[in-house]
Design a protein around this nucleic acid. Structure first.
Length: 201
DNA sequence: AACCAGGAGAGAG
DNA sequence: CTCTCTCATGGT
């Protein structure tokens, strides 16, 4: 068994991965509304801690704007004001609107889910404001696709357990994917454990 | 008061 | 292709 797989069982046992430990960013969305929230969160959380994102999301929810249709229509200054707490609001507001447009033009979340996800990943990467991490977050968390997310937590995790010296995003991604069954739930759980382990050390 | 927190794009060399 | 700079807020 690979080191990565062993670590998974080890961490799962140590942290007893129960539903209650699942916070918003690692909870499995079911409804379209929830999936759209994940997409929005994926953009807002860029280079920001989750607490600030929660404030921005709370603002959007309070204004009843926490869905892609509304985001696509709202005027830019208003959107900026609402997402201000999570920083970089000038770029993120533009990214959000672009993303909303992209999803809607594609026929919505439901249609996107039917796409070949490798092709969809390419399309996502062509969107301004969507890099590899954001694309994989959307694919894995919002669309139930087995695309492993490499982020700052994952990189620290890899270093902490001496899994490899590699820094390249794709190579790190493959390191995990090649060692694990292609299961989007497993990828989500693993990433949640990586974050929990990172916060407990 | 500096520094960090789940990134990505644009420009320089 | 790799490096550096910029975008900006909130908590410690």
């Amino acid at each position: 068994m690979s080191k990565i797989k062993k670590l998974y069982f080890q961490l799962k046992k140590r942290y007893n991965l129960p539903e209650k430990q699942w916070k918003m960013w690692c909870r499995r969305p079911k409804t379209i509304k929830e999936r759209e929230e994940v997409v929005i969160g994926a953009i807002l959380t860029q280079n920001t801690n989750w607490q600030n994102v929660e404030k921005a999301i709370a603002n959007l929810k309070k204004a009843d704007l926490l869905n892609l249709d509304k985001i696509a229509k709202i005027n830019l200054p208003k959107l900026k004001k609402l997402i201000k707490p999570c920083g970089f609001f000038n770029v993120k507001s533009r990214y959000l609107k672009d993303m909303a447009g992209f999803v809607l033009d594609s026929g919505g979340i439901k249609e996107l889910k039917k796409n070949n996800w490798l092709k969809l990943r390419e399309n996502l990467l062509n969107q301004k404001g969507v890099g590899q991490e954001t694309a994989d977050s959307i694919l894995n968390y919002a669309l139930d696709k087995p695309s492993f997310v490499i982020d700052a937590y994952t990189r620290r995790f890899v270093k902490k357990y001496n899994l490899t010296q590699e820094q390249d995003y794709e190579k790190l991604k493959n390191l995990f994917q090649d060692s694990l069954k292609k299961d989007f739930r497993l990828y989500q759980d693993y990433h949640a454990l990586i974050v929990i382990d990172g916060q407990n050390s």
